[in-house]
Protein backbone atom coordinates (compact mmCIF):
# COMPACT_ATOMS: atom_id res chain seq x y z
CA UNK A 1 0.00 0.00 0.00
CA UNK A 2 2.79 2.41 0.89
CA UNK A 3 4.63 1.73 -2.36
CA UNK A 4 1.38 2.44 -4.16
CA UNK A 5 1.06 5.83 -2.48
CA UNK A 6 4.73 6.51 -3.18
CA UNK A 7 4.24 5.72 -6.83
CA UNK A 8 1.15 7.90 -7.08
CA UNK A 9 3.01 10.79 -5.50
CA UNK A 10 5.99 10.38 -7.81
CA UNK A 11 3.62 10.25 -10.74
CA UNK A 12 1.92 13.43 -9.56
CA UNK A 13 5.28 15.10 -9.05
CA UNK A 14 6.58 14.26 -12.49
CA UNK A 15 3.27 15.23 -14.10
CA UNK A 16 3.27 18.50 -12.16
CA UNK A 17 6.82 19.28 -13.22
CA UNK A 18 6.00 18.55 -16.84
CA UNK A 19 2.86 20.65 -16.59
CA UNK A 20 4.90 23.53 -15.16
CA UNK A 21 7.38 23.27 -18.03
CA UNK A 22 4.53 23.10 -20.50
CA UNK A 23 2.88 26.13 -18.94
CA UNK A 24 6.16 28.05 -19.09
CA UNK A 25 6.57 27.11 -22.73
CA UNK A 26 3.02 27.91 -23.81
CA UNK A 27 1.90 30.66 -21.50
CA UNK A 28 5.06 32.54 -20.63
CA UNK A 29 7.23 32.25 -23.71
CA UNK A 30 6.64 33.31 -27.27
CA UNK A 31 6.14 29.77 -28.52
CA UNK A 32 2.46 30.40 -29.21
CA UNK A 33 3.27 33.39 -31.38
CA UNK A 34 6.29 31.81 -32.98
CA UNK A 35 5.39 29.90 -36.10
CA UNK A 36 7.71 31.00 -38.85
CA UNK A 37 9.21 27.62 -39.55
CA UNK A 38 7.43 27.75 -42.87
CA UNK A 39 7.34 30.89 -44.88
CA UNK A 40 8.97 32.79 -47.66
CA UNK A 41 11.94 35.13 -47.58
CA UNK A 42 11.88 38.66 -48.88
CA UNK A 43 14.71 41.12 -48.93
CA UNK A 44 14.96 44.84 -48.28
CA UNK A 45 17.92 47.18 -48.37
CA UNK A 46 18.20 49.92 -45.80
CA UNK A 47 20.59 52.85 -45.52
CA UNK A 48 20.59 52.29 -41.80
CA UNK A 49 19.45 49.19 -39.95
CA UNK A 50 20.84 50.10 -36.55
CA UNK A 51 18.95 48.60 -33.64
CA UNK A 52 17.30 45.92 -35.74
CA UNK A 53 18.05 42.38 -34.65
CA UNK A 54 17.55 38.92 -36.01
CA UNK A 55 14.08 37.72 -34.92
CA UNK A 56 12.75 41.25 -34.64
CA UNK A 57 9.10 41.32 -35.67
CA UNK A 58 7.97 42.28 -39.16
CA UNK A 59 4.56 43.88 -39.00
CA UNK A 60 1.92 45.14 -41.33
CA UNK A 61 -0.92 47.26 -39.99
CA UNK A 62 0.49 46.58 -36.55
CA UNK A 63 0.14 42.80 -36.79
CA UNK A 64 3.23 40.61 -36.72
CA UNK A 65 3.34 38.65 -39.95
CA UNK A 66 6.95 37.54 -39.92
CA UNK A 67 10.39 37.84 -38.39
CA UNK A 68 13.74 39.21 -39.46
CA UNK A 69 15.80 36.22 -40.51
CA UNK A 70 19.17 37.71 -41.22
CA UNK A 71 20.91 41.06 -41.46
CA UNK A 72 24.03 41.35 -43.60
CA UNK A 73 26.14 44.16 -44.97
CA UNK A 74 26.47 44.57 -48.71
CA UNK A 75 30.02 45.60 -49.61
CA UNK A 76 29.01 46.90 -53.04
CA UNK A 77 26.16 49.20 -52.19
CA UNK A 78 27.28 49.86 -48.60
CA UNK A 79 23.78 49.13 -47.43
CA UNK A 80 22.27 46.82 -44.87
CA UNK A 81 20.45 43.90 -46.44
CA UNK A 82 17.64 42.66 -44.20
CA UNK A 83 16.19 39.27 -45.04
CA UNK A 84 12.74 38.74 -43.61
CA UNK A 85 10.71 35.56 -43.39
CA UNK A 86 7.00 36.10 -43.75
CA UNK A 87 4.36 33.55 -42.85
CA UNK A 88 3.04 31.53 -45.76
CA UNK A 89 -0.55 32.53 -45.06
CA UNK A 90 0.27 36.15 -45.86
CA UNK A 91 1.11 35.65 -49.49
CA UNK A 92 -0.96 38.41 -51.02
CA UNK A 93 1.11 41.46 -50.21
CA UNK A 94 1.36 43.81 -53.20
CA UNK A 95 4.86 44.02 -54.64
CA UNK A 96 4.91 47.77 -54.24
CA UNK A 97 4.96 47.31 -50.47
CA UNK A 98 7.41 49.59 -48.70
CA UNK A 99 9.42 48.73 -45.60
CA UNK A 100 10.49 51.03 -42.79
CA UNK A 101 12.27 50.46 -39.52
CA UNK A 102 10.32 51.80 -36.59
CA UNK A 103 10.75 51.87 -32.85
CA UNK A 104 8.11 50.38 -30.59
CA UNK A 105 7.43 53.08 -28.04
CA UNK A 106 9.92 55.84 -27.44
CA UNK A 107 12.83 53.63 -26.43
CA UNK A 108 11.49 50.21 -27.32
CA UNK A 109 12.88 47.64 -29.66
CA UNK A 110 13.08 48.15 -33.40
CA UNK A 111 10.79 46.39 -35.82
CA UNK A 112 10.18 46.42 -39.55
CA UNK A 113 6.88 47.92 -40.57
CA UNK A 114 5.55 47.04 -44.02
CA UNK A 115 3.11 49.37 -45.69
CA UNK A 116 1.04 48.28 -48.65
CA UNK A 117 1.95 50.31 -51.66
CA UNK A 118 0.56 50.47 -55.13
CA UNK A 119 0.94 47.05 -56.58
CA UNK A 120 2.33 46.76 -60.06
CA UNK A 121 -1.11 45.52 -60.87
CA UNK A 122 -2.03 47.49 -63.95
CA UNK A 123 -5.58 46.22 -63.93
CA UNK A 124 -6.39 48.07 -60.76
CA UNK A 125 -4.74 51.19 -62.13
CA UNK A 126 -6.74 50.93 -65.30
CA UNK A 127 -9.88 50.30 -63.35
CA UNK A 128 -9.31 53.38 -61.24
CA UNK A 129 -8.51 55.43 -64.29
CA UNK A 130 -11.67 54.26 -65.98
CA UNK A 131 -13.71 55.13 -62.94
CA UNK A 132 -12.22 58.60 -62.82
CA UNK A 133 -13.04 59.25 -66.43
CA UNK A 134 -16.46 57.70 -66.15
CA UNK A 135 -15.73 55.05 -68.74
CA UNK A 136 -16.78 51.49 -68.38
CA UNK A 137 -14.00 49.09 -67.53
CA UNK A 138 -13.67 45.71 -69.08
CA UNK A 139 -11.52 43.33 -67.04
CA UNK A 140 -10.84 41.27 -70.14
CA UNK A 141 -8.70 44.07 -71.54
CA UNK A 142 -6.36 43.77 -68.69
CA UNK A 143 -3.43 41.44 -69.31
CA UNK A 144 -1.15 42.06 -66.40
CA UNK A 145 -1.41 39.86 -63.36
CA UNK A 146 -1.41 41.29 -59.88
CA UNK A 147 2.10 41.26 -58.43
CA UNK A 148 2.59 39.81 -55.01
CA UNK A 149 5.66 39.50 -52.86
CA UNK A 150 7.04 36.00 -53.12
CA UNK A 151 10.16 34.05 -52.25
CA UNK A 152 13.19 36.18 -53.06
CA UNK A 153 11.30 39.41 -53.83
CA UNK A 154 13.07 42.63 -53.12
CA UNK A 155 11.30 45.57 -51.53
CA UNK A 156 12.23 48.72 -53.42
CA UNK A 157 11.04 51.52 -51.20
CA UNK A 158 12.67 51.53 -47.80
CA UNK A 159 13.18 53.90 -44.93
CA UNK A 160 15.98 53.08 -42.49
CA UNK A 161 16.12 53.52 -38.73
CA UNK A 162 15.78 56.92 -37.23
CA UNK A 163 18.86 57.38 -35.11
CA UNK A 164 18.21 59.71 -32.23
CA UNK A 165 21.64 61.33 -32.37
CA UNK A 166 21.22 62.15 -36.04
CA UNK A 167 17.84 63.71 -35.43
CA UNK A 168 19.19 65.78 -32.56
CA UNK A 169 22.19 66.76 -34.68
CA UNK A 170 19.89 67.90 -37.46
CA UNK A 171 17.76 69.82 -35.02
CA UNK A 172 20.75 71.49 -33.39
CA UNK A 173 22.36 72.54 -36.63
CA UNK A 174 19.02 73.85 -37.87
CA UNK A 175 18.54 75.70 -34.62
CA UNK A 176 22.01 77.24 -34.84
CA UNK A 177 21.56 78.52 -38.36
CA UNK A 178 18.17 79.98 -37.53
CA UNK A 179 19.58 81.55 -34.40
CA UNK A 180 22.12 83.45 -36.50
CA UNK A 181 19.28 84.88 -38.52
CA UNK A 182 20.91 83.80 -41.75
CA UNK A 183 20.07 81.39 -44.52
CA UNK A 184 16.54 80.98 -43.27
CA UNK A 185 15.57 79.81 -46.70
CA UNK A 186 17.59 76.67 -46.27
CA UNK A 187 16.47 76.06 -42.71
CA UNK A 188 13.98 73.43 -43.68
CA UNK A 189 16.56 71.56 -45.70
CA UNK A 190 18.38 68.38 -44.84
CA UNK A 191 21.39 68.08 -42.61
CA UNK A 192 23.77 68.73 -45.46
CA UNK A 193 22.34 72.19 -46.01
CA UNK A 194 22.39 72.87 -42.31
CA UNK A 195 26.03 72.06 -41.87
CA UNK A 196 26.99 74.06 -44.91
CA UNK A 197 25.29 77.07 -43.43
CA UNK A 198 26.99 76.77 -40.08
CA UNK A 199 30.30 76.53 -41.83
CA UNK A 200 29.69 79.72 -43.78
CA UNK A 201 28.64 81.58 -40.67
CA UNK A 202 31.76 80.40 -38.93
CA UNK A 203 33.81 81.57 -41.88
CA UNK A 204 32.23 84.98 -41.75
CA UNK A 205 32.84 85.26 -38.06
CA UNK A 206 36.50 84.30 -38.45
Amino acid sequence: MTTRITEIWVGLFVAGGMAALFMLAMQVSNLSTYSNEEGYDIEARFEDASGLKVRSPVTMAGVTIGRVKDIVFDDNTLQAVVIMRLDNVHNRLPDGTSASIYTAGLLGEKYVGLEPGSSANECEDMMLEAEMEGREFDPANCQSKPGYLAEGSKIQITQGSMVLEKLIGQFVSKFLTEGDGKAKDNAGDNTGGGTDNTETTKGQKG
Partner: peptide, 16 residues
Protein backbone atom coordinates in the same frame (compact mmCIF):
# COMPACT_ATOMS: atom_id res chain seq x y z
CA UNK B 1 19.19 14.90 -11.43
CA UNK B 2 15.61 14.09 -12.49
CA UNK B 3 13.95 16.03 -9.70
CA UNK B 4 15.92 19.25 -9.89
CA UNK B 5 14.69 20.57 -13.29
CA UNK B 6 11.12 19.58 -12.44
CA UNK B 7 11.33 21.42 -9.14
CA UNK B 8 12.84 24.47 -10.83
CA UNK B 9 10.08 24.49 -13.45
CA UNK B 10 7.42 24.23 -10.75
CA UNK B 11 9.13 27.03 -8.84
CA UNK B 12 9.14 29.33 -11.88
CA UNK B 13 5.56 28.54 -12.85
CA UNK B 14 4.25 29.08 -9.34
CA UNK B 15 6.31 32.27 -9.10
CA UNK B 16 4.80 33.65 -12.30
Amino acid sequence: VISMPLLAAIFSAVGV
